[in-house]
């Protein structure tokens, strides 16, 4: 914590342009953003929903053991290793629940402040608009990782309790030591975070277009779903590799032996491209916008 960081922003004389204000690279704004996200009761409720899926899944599998080949992917592997509860739950939540969670936060990022009328106070602090966007995006990314990790941790814990740990069977049929299995699960979480952060960047751009956070959230979730629908239409195969959700399920390549990097690399590249383009678009829109609320 630097001295400059602890300077009260209101101590500046009125009329001093933002550019003359002391440069602050402290973490206070970022921490306050995180507090805004993680301190809200509605986000806690959303987290509970996310965490309930692996619990329900694990109990259902414990009660009635699935046959190989039955049901969604990874379900039949759960009885062999509890870590698959986390993976199966992530597969189930990836199409809708996780995009919904990230969409709610990203849609709220700018439009929520505008809706509550706090955006102008925030900008008057003063916070540079570019910095505001970057901090907001950083908070969205942290939230995306937290949401994914929440599902993974809850799934792993209940899976290990109900089904035990031990070596993890890869998709290639080989067995990995438990620690290596945990490492692969972490890689899966990080990959999903990158994919969801790209969606968050698109969401933050949408959020700068409106003052209605719910509208922005709906737009982001619709985008994620439309992208998945388009991805399933074979006649549109020419555009598939540019759809934001196209490589989401490529995380399965992290569970092979050895890891297949091709699709993962493409997925990260696409996510990075969407992130940069839409952060720049959000900056173009937000930095020139009249903020009246």
């Amino acid at each position: 914590m630097s001295v400059a960081d602890s300077l009260p922003a209101t101590g500046l004389p009125i009329g001093v342009p933002a550019a003359l204000a002391p440069r602050r690279f402290g973490t206070r704004f970022f921490r306050s953003e995180l507090w805004l996200i993680f301190g809200r009761r509605r986000n806690w409720a959303g987290g509970l929903v996310l965490a309930s899926v692996p619990i329900i899944l694990a109990i259902a599998v414990k009660v009635s053991e699935p046959q190989p080949g039955d049901g969604p992917d990874f379900i039949s592997q759960i009885t062999g290793n509890g870590l698959f509860v986390a993976l199966a739950a992530l597969v189930l939540e990836l199409p809708l629940f996780l995009p919904l969670a990230v969409g709610a936060i990203a849609g709220d990022a700018v439009a929520g402040e505008a809706n509550l009328g706090t955006l102008r106070y925030l900008l008057a602090v003063p916070v540079h608009r570019t910095r505001l966007l970057l901090v907001k995006f950083g908070a969205i990314t942290v939230f995306a990782f937290t949401a994914v990790a929440l599902v993974a941790v809850v799934g792993s814990v209940i899976g290990l309790v109900l089904f035990g740990g031990g070596p993890l069977t890869t998709l290639s049929g080989s067995q990995l030591p438990f620690a290596e299995g945990l490492w692969r699960l972490l890689l899966v979480c990080l990959y999903m975070t990158a994919c969801l952060a790209a969606l968050g960047a698109i969401g933050m751009f949408v959020s700068t277009l409106t003052e209605q956070p719910i509208g922005a959230t709906i737009a982001i979730v619709m985008l994620a779903i439309v992208s998945q629908i388009l991805d399933s239409i074979p006649q549109l195969s020419a555009i598939h590799e540019y759809l934001p959700t196209h490589y989401w399920l490529a995380f399965g390549d992290l569970l092979r032996d050895p890891i297949a990097t091709g699709q993962i690399g493409n997925g990260l590249g696409l996510a990075w491209t969407y992130t940069v383009v839409f952060l720049a678009a959000a900056w173009a829109r937000f930095a020139s916008r009249d903020v009246s609320s």
């Binding site: 992917d73 990874f74 597969v91 998709l171 290639s172 049929g173 399920l249 399965g252 390549d253 092979r256 297949a260």
Partner: peptide, 11 residues
């Protein structure tokens, strides 16, 4: 030879 499926594999 490994045939890669979305979340599966045949070898």
């Amino acid at each position: 030879l490994a045939l890669l499926g979305t979340l599966g594999e045949s070898d």
